[in-house]
């Protein structure tokens, strides 16, 4: 008798989100199978994407081996972003770290102007994150959204404390929202429910927080896995969004990654690989070598 392997068919479909416009665009999500379940019925039309991170100021605490790939451009965020493009990134992830009141408290206008310059200078899509300070982000992100009006960028983090003001600005200027909640599926769903009262669900990406290996990675892993399962298996409308794993910064602030290049690449790589398996749709790296290696791994057939 012929053996036929059992296959599953699911009812949920992750919403497909387009970041950017025209040739400067990419798509994430759209899958109706669990991560790498290619044996089940369904498909993932958009393989995972890889973004490289750029800061809006010269990094203060990066080890030499992380600066090295960008050493001639690291003082200029626009050149740095172009370099990421040359290195084969699918997208640039700009973090406006200098706007943090605890860093430089630089102004929303400065940040917005830089964001626009970068968006115009590169031929790949741009993701923009504020510093994570919810109050300051509520000033900065609306300005950024306005400066980049109509470019359909992915902007965040939209948080429980500022989703109304930031979400409205993103909506008014035609961008996608990256909704961040602190490692908790119930809070994550709550934020999506509240945001969706005025913001289209098809333009939301979930940022569940991506903790580094040895620093809580297993929590992020379980959470991403659960978000996918609840979306795809039980068809929960408020978790059927693509996931972003913003892990580069988390990995490269560990003692282990700072100590030694090889260790750092492994730290970032293993963290990324874990989140790939958990179902991340786009991953943010700091080191281009990790990003290339992961890309190679996912392309193996």
């Amino acid at each position: 008798m012929e053996y036929k392997a059992p296959t599953e068919e699911y009812t949920g479909v992750v919403r497909e989100v387009t970041i950017g416009k025209g040739r400067k665009s990419l798509k994430i999500g759209g899958e109706n199978i669990l991560p790498f379940h290619f044996f089940d019925k369904g498909s993932n039309p958009n393989p995972v994407k890889f973004a490289l991170e750029v800061l809006d100021m010269e990094p203060q605490d990066w080890p030499e081996h992380l600066i090295q790939p960008f050493k001639n451009v690291i003082a200029d965020p626009v050149k740095w972003a172009k370099k990421c493009e040359e290195l084969g990134a699918d997208a640039v992830f700009l973090r406006l770290v200098s706007t943090d009141p605890a860093v430089k408290d630089s102004s929303a206008d400065e940040a917005a102007a830089l964001a626009k310059r970068i968006a115009e200078a590169i031929d790949i899509p741009l993701i923009i994150y504020g510093s994570g300070d919810d109050k300051k982000d509520a000033e900065v992100l609306p300005k950024v959204a306005e400066a980049c009006d109509g470019m359909n960028l992915l902007i965040g983090p939209v948080q429980k404390e500022n989703y109304e003001v930031v979400g409205k600005a993103l909506l008014d200027h035609g961008h996608n929202a990256s909704a961040l909640s602190p490692l908790d599926i119930n809070l994550l769903k709550e934020l999506n429910v509240k945001l969706c009262k005025f913001f289209p669900a098809e333009k939301i990406v979930i940022d569940p927080e991506a903790a580094a290996l040895g620093y809580g990675m297993e929590y992020s892993f379980s959470l991403m896995e659960r978000v996918k399962q609840i979306g795809i298996i039980t068809k929960d409308n408020m978790t059927m969004m693509p996931l972003i794993a913003d892990l580069g910064g988390e990995c490269w602030k560990t003692k282990q990654a700072k100590e030694d290049k090889e260790q750092g690449l492994l730290w970032e790589g293993i963290t990324a690989l874990s989140f790939l398996l958990a179902g991340a749709n786009i991953i943010v790296f700091r080191h281009p070598e990790t990003s290339s290696l992961m890309k190679k791994i996912t392309e193996v057939k």
Binding site: K189, D236, T239
Partner: peptide, 12 residues
């Protein structure tokens, strides 16, 4: 356990 809990469960 049929729908995922959040504090906004009555709103969705």
């Amino acid at each position: 356990g049929e729908t995922l809990y959040s504090d906004a469960w009555l709103e969705s």
